[in-house]
C-alpha cells in the first residue's frame, strides 16, 4: 500500500496484489484475461483491422497492437459510426476483446459493446485507467458489477 500512497496513484502496487473495482454492467457475463490499457479513445471504422483485432489508427498509442482476447481498458469510443459494425465483425472473426472496461458512455460504445457480446462495464468507483496497467490479470464479472485486478508488477 505504501508504494501506492507514495505514487499518489493506484498503479504501481506490489506484484500479485489484488484490487477490486465496482461499476455498472453494460453487457453481462464473466471472463478473465490480460489487460490492454490505453489512454487514447478508440476509433472503430478506420481505426481497427477487425480481421486481426489490431489498432491501426496513425497516431494511436496502441498502433499495431491486437486486443484479441484481451480485457481492453480505454476512455471510450471516437470516430465514425461504423464503430459497432467493426467490433461486430471482430466478434465474428474471433478477434474481439474478451471484455471492455471504459469511462465515457456514448452510443458508439454502448451499441458496439452490445453487439460484441463480451462482458462490458462502465461508471466505476475508481478510474480503471489509474488502477489497471497493460499486462495485469483482470477478472470481469459484469453481472455483479465487479472487476478484480491482479497486478503484474
Amino acid at each position: 500500500m505504501s508504494a501506492a500512497m507514495n505514487a499518489g496513484l493506484d498503479a504501481g502496487r506490489a506484484p500479485g496484489e489484488k484490487i477490486i473495482l465496482r461499476g455498472r454492467k453494460v453487457v453481462g457475463g464473466c471472463c478473465e484475461g490480460e489487460a490492454l490499457v490505453t489512454r487514447d479513445r478508440v476509433s472503430g471504422w478506420g481505426g481497427i483491422d477487425p480481421s486481426t483485432g489490431t489498432i491501426i489508427e496513425t497516431r494511436h498509442q496502441l498502433r499495431g497492437q491486437s486486443f484479441k482476447g484481451k480485457v481492453l481498458v480505454f476512455p471510450g469510443a471516437k470516430g465514425s459510426s461504423g464503430w459497432s459494425n467493426q467490433f461486430h465483425i471482430a466478434r465474428l472473426a474471433g478477434t474481439a476483446p474478451a471484455a471492455m472496461l471504459f469511462n465515457e458512455m456514448t452510443t458508439k460504445i454502448a451499441l458496439g459493446a452490445v453487439v460484441t457480446h463480451a462482458p462490458a462495464m462502465t461508471d466505476f468507483d475508481r478510474d480503471p485507467l489509474q488502477v489497471i496497467e497493460t499486462g495485469d490479470w483482470v477478472r470481469v464479472d459484469a453481472d455483479r458489477g465487479v472487476v478484480e485486478v491482479t497486478k503484474k508488477r
Binding site: S81, G82, S84, N85, H88, T106, T107, L111, V114, V115
Partner: peptide
C-alpha cells in the same frame, strides 16, 4: 440524433 450504428 445520436450517432447510431448499423444495428440500431
Amino acid at each position: 440524433t445520436n450517432t447510431e450504428g448499423r444495428e440500431s
